[in-house]
Structure formats: C-alpha cells, structure tokens
Amino acid sequence: MGSFIANLLLATVRMASPLIFLSLAELYSQRAGLVNIGIEGLAAIGSLTGFLISLITGNPLLGVLAGALAGILVNMIFAYATITLCAEQIVYGMAINIFAPALAAFTYRVYFGSGSELVQVELMGTMKSMFGIKSDNFFVNLFLDQTPMVYLAYILVIVTAIYFTRTKSGLNYKAVGEYPKAAATLGINVIGIKYLSCIICGALAGIGGAYLTTCYSKTYVDGNVAGRGFIALAAVIFGRWSSGGVLIACLFFGFCDALQIRLQLVNNTLPYQFFQMIPYVATVVVLAIIGAKKAGPRASGQPYRKEER
C-alpha cells in the first residue's frame, strides 16, 4: 500500500506537468483578454513536431523546442484572426482545434506512410539517470527521478506568479485583459501585448504537447492530447486565473490522471474505461461545484478596436 501511495504521488507530479504547460498557456492568453479554446489543437501539433524532431535529431530537448515553435506558428493564425480581424475567439479556437490536429495527422501520414507499425522514440532522461544515482528512496525519486521538463513546468509557475504580481510589465499585461482602452490611454501597446500573449501561449501549448511525446510516451498517436487542452481551460477557471491556483488545479487533475492509471493496474474486475473516465468526470464535478462566480479578466473574449465611435 505504501508503494501504491508513493507511486501515486510520483505519478501525480509527472502527470501534472503537461497540464501545467497547457494551463499556463491558457492563463497567459486570457490575461491578455484572449480566450483560446484551441489549446488542445496547439498541443497536438506540438506533440507531433516534438516527436518528429526528437526522432530525427535524437535529442528530445530539440524536439521540445521545435514543438514550441510549431505551437507559436499555428497560434499566429489565431492571433491574426482574433486580434487583427476581430474574429470571435471561441469560434476561432474551435477552428484551430480542427485545423491543427488535421495538420499533425497529415504530417505523420506523409512522413511515415500508411504503415501500421508504431515508430518509437527515445524519451528524455531523468535527472536521476543523468547523474547515475542508484538510490530508490522516495524523496530521491520525487525530486530527481524527473525529466528537466518537470522542473521547467514548476519553475514557470513561479516565474509567472512573480511576473503578474511583482513586475511592471506584468501589471501592464494584466491591464490589457482587464480594460484595454484604459491601458491604451496609458501608452500601453495593447495590440502588441495581445500578439505577445499568443506567442507565449503558442509556445507553452506546443511544449505541453511535446512533453507527451518526449517525456511521457515513446509513440505518437492521433488524439494523444486526450482532452488535456480542455482540462487546462477548466484548470484556469478552477485556479481563479492565478498562477498558484492553476498549479493546485493541475496537481488535482494530475492526481486524477495518476489515480486512474494506478487503479487500472491494481483492479481487474471493473472495465478499465471506468477508471479512464476519472479525470473527465472530475473536471465536470469540480466545475459544477465551484459554480460560476464571475471572475477572470473583464475584457476576456471581447475584440479590441482602436478608433471607435
């Protein structure tokens, strides 16, 4: 039982990491007033790109980097449509959710042909294996049996918290999501920050997707993001648009994910699908419980136009 809990906790930390990237992506987007429900799609393209590049170069870190780039590129479509053309954000996010996975699936087909054999890629090593540590102590595992990406995720949470609460730039950034017109009268470059938010969002979503193929699973399959992009949306609401809150939400959802995997392994009476439902059902239940206290950036979802009368 002790090892069950230890393994559960270790898995929680690991499973929360991709969610943290994706949720922070959404957080940066919404803080600038852009609700991007296309995170799922951005993660899909990031995942495929990460997979391909780490396969080609043999370097998972390069894969992650390429995943970030791919996320940025695709999110620039969203940026142009919603910021410059003032397209409805929800609708356009949906378009991204259709476009990006299709692009990922197509690229995979073209690269590997229609053969059914799954190509495998070498995963990123953990710190423990890198330093050749042999100990199997729980704390060693918790803190060292992790890939660099896990550290990056948690560092980003701290950096984000500091950015939005302690820096001048972060304050300006938040003002764009709250009241862009007021921000503009204070000389803040509203359009610029909105585009910047899309770059950050695309990069983080791409990294979150690439995590899945460089640190989590050796193969790429269509739909491997498995709704994490949407759970990230819930995590941002659950986390009340703060970096710390998002972390707690992601740990919770990561725990649900870890739990379902662990339960599948120990239980063989119930069909495994019931365990797989846990993260999704948990999301619905959590949203139902917290209700809809209107919170979050005030200008979220609204287009911003300059000379208006």
Binding site: I37, I90, A226, G227, F230, I231, L233, A234, I237, P271, Q273, F274, Q276, M277, Y280, V281, T283, V284, L287, A288, G291, A292
Partner: peptide, 22 residues
C-alpha cells in the same frame, strides 16, 4: 450553475466514448 458548457460537453464526449468502450 452558470457553468461553461464548452468544457462540460467536451468532457462528456470523452466519458461517452469510454462508456462505449465498456
């Protein structure tokens, strides 16, 4: 509950797909 229907309906998609799996 004033909840965001997009997230809920998507989550229920996954649940339905898994239920079909069962």
């Amino acid at each position: 509950r004033g909840q965001n229907e997009m997230i809920i309906t998507i989550m229920l998609n996954y649940v339905a797909t898994l239920l079909m799996g069962v």
